[in-house]
Design a protein around this nucleic acid. Structure first.
Lengths: 219, 219, 219, 219
DNA sequence: CATGAATGAGTTTTCATTCAT
DNA sequence: TATGAATGAAAACTCATTCAT
């Protein structure tokens, strides 16, 4: 008759699900929360929906997180692992040409766009909630944008130093942002349009082509 | 009668209660709604806040829009005026070089990013609510992305035809998306970071520089 | 877009309808109100709907009636005209047999059930709102039930006096109510079931048959 | 977070907050709802009043019923138990005379009128809301009127078969409705007039007397 | 007299949070 | 730990009533 009656199956005595230690339960809740927040935004997310996604009862969330706001913060923190460690490692140990490095990094960026579901969720949260949650904007600036710009600048400097790129590549202050922009735009389009977004593989190819041509030292 | 006498109707202390014709009141409500939705997202927006912004009583909104959902739809529709007419007009009547046209269009794009507050609000709504409201994604695809890509492709073709750009510029399918990406990324950064976003003027300069160099026919 | 915009047709300048004198406007509003109250009950009725039915603007109702409650009272009073004058006149001047009189009165009652739309509306209001509006119950008792019972008793007495009915007909205190009950039940069924109600003509025939047989003096 | 911190959750001064299993809580809410709807009608009923009658918080109703409309439906369904099982059982197993059976059934009907509070409430709801809720009219036709008519017809047939009633009793199509009409009218009067209604005991006596006389075979 | 925009108190409904079990 | 019934504050929405035009 009602959902309530349906859920209890008529005898009304529910039995607790498996009793899990906190180390196991928390990631489960966090994963559910990240999904829910990413899909609905902070205000649109419902604690009951988080619980349902996690397969637990509403009340249990409050054993682990004191409030929706704190659950949100924790969700962000959980997503916000070092995104660029990989790229930075690759950069620091690199031996080959700057052109090759650029190609590698671009390939890496597009690969992440395609594959990392949680990262897309984090990005969506940042877009959606940055205005209301200053920490989100700060996190994005510090952990994502600045590090990405740093990597881009390092590559540009390396290419200019090696003579592969024309000197302007290191001198134009906005260039680092511009060369990483297609990946950002691509991820936004993926987010909004899903299947209908511009083709990422084609963008990747054109992106690399344009950069190599545009950065190239005059022959 | 019992509870019938309950509806009172206030005690008369309020503003002059201006009576406006619907043609004047509706845009006022819509503008307030656009602001509120853009700042808080659909779920976070409050009808009371819309009314406050518009300087009217809550109930009056329902005189014009039957529900929050319909007010939202109407807000979007109201924003969604032809964004690209200007650019398309410029394109069709253009006489000069493709390089010059490219520079013009880029300047136009960045100018809009800087100036049009409502357009930023619309973009924010699209990002935020596209998942919940499929029409938003469709609108973006049709009215914004496709037209922008069309303009970009037209410029590329013109430049290739005139020999200013190398032939690859028209052959790479992802290039149109790539060349407009920095403006998209720039607007996203503005949206998230505000003052702390990468400098738009510097991006504009680097963007144009990279494109002209990257598209340029080999000498 | 909105009903408001639709109603004004875009220019927003509405012109007042014909200016009518109170004598003409009041019945128009009352008729609309009776319909609305009968269909929806007091609480469910809406002033806007009354106005729509009357073809006037909401505000105009308040020129004639100070409140919903008073409009309701006035609606009842307007319905509550002497329902039984006809029957009482017929009774007082009657010359023929009591059996004939009974047949006449029963025919009259069923005819009213079939024909008088406003009377059905009044009856519905009485059923629906009597609990909340004591005046309604009092009105029913005084103007309808008591007069009907009076008529029934008079006929019974006349029939006993003339020897047509057995003496018990005047001695049983509940009989007057019982002999008029089928008409009441019939009107209730009409009200609830409309077309699907038991057939009134068949009831009328059986009703008369049963009464004549049941009241008849033993041979 | 801004307005997120708004939802507080009270300060803890209230009743013991009994926790009941759904099987216990639902009937409690339904009983409260039936009362409220019967007294005020659908439109006039207040969810807050239902909660108050049930001794619970407003919100809890929505745990069990998704909306006022569904609560209303459920209330009706809850009332609508087999009303006539008793009568039909009595009918099928009956051994004595048809006159005795008729007397028994009439006594049973009037007893119910006097005693069953919930049944009166259901009848009031049917009268009040049948127009708005077609299911109510259908329910009345199917579960109440048709079964009552069926019982009446069976008694008439039995009496004619045994020679106790004159043959016309089975031949007049409207007679079944007529013989049960006084009970219906009586319940309407009770509903409208309460204490001031015609005396039920007197009606019962007169009703039986009239029927026995009116149905009786000529000696 | 006539209109319908405007108001705001009151209703339904939602949902974060608490707590008996 | 785990559950979901229970709460209450706030949000959406309704509608009698007022009043500028």
């Amino acid at each position: 008759m009602t959902e309530a009656a349906a859920a209890t199956g008529g005898d009304g005595r529910q039995e607790p699900r498996a009793r899990l230690p906190p180390e196991a339960r928390m990631p489960q809740i966090l994963a559910a929360a990240i999904e829910e927040f990413a899909e609905r935004g902070y205000a649109g997310a419902r604690m009951a929906a988080v619980a349902r996604r996690a397969g637990i009862a509403k009340g249990l969330i409050y054993h682990y997180f004191p409030s929706k706001a704190e659950l949100f913060q924790a969700s962000i923190t959980a997503c916000a692992r070092p995104v660029f460690e990989d790229a930075e490692r690759r950069l620091s140990g690199f031996e080959g040409s700057a052109r090759q490095l650029l190609a590698d990094l671009i390939a890496l960026a597009y690969a992440r766009l395609r594959e990392e579901k949680q990262e897309r969720a984090l990005f969506r949260l940042i877009l959606t909630e940055a205005e209301r949650v200053p920490e989100l904007a700060e996190f994005y600036r510090r952990e994502i944008l600045d590090r990405a710009l740093g990597i881009a600048r390092a590559v540009l400097r390396a290419g200019v130093a090696s003579g592969e790129f024309r000197p302007a590549a290191a001198a134009l202050p906005g260039l680092a942002a511009v060369i990483m922009a297609p990946a950002v735009a691509g991820s936004v389009w993926q987010m909004i349009l899903g299947e209908a977004a511009p083709d990422l593989a084609a963008m990747q190819a054109a992106h690399l082509d344009l950069l190599l041509a545009g950065l190239g030292a005059a022959p």
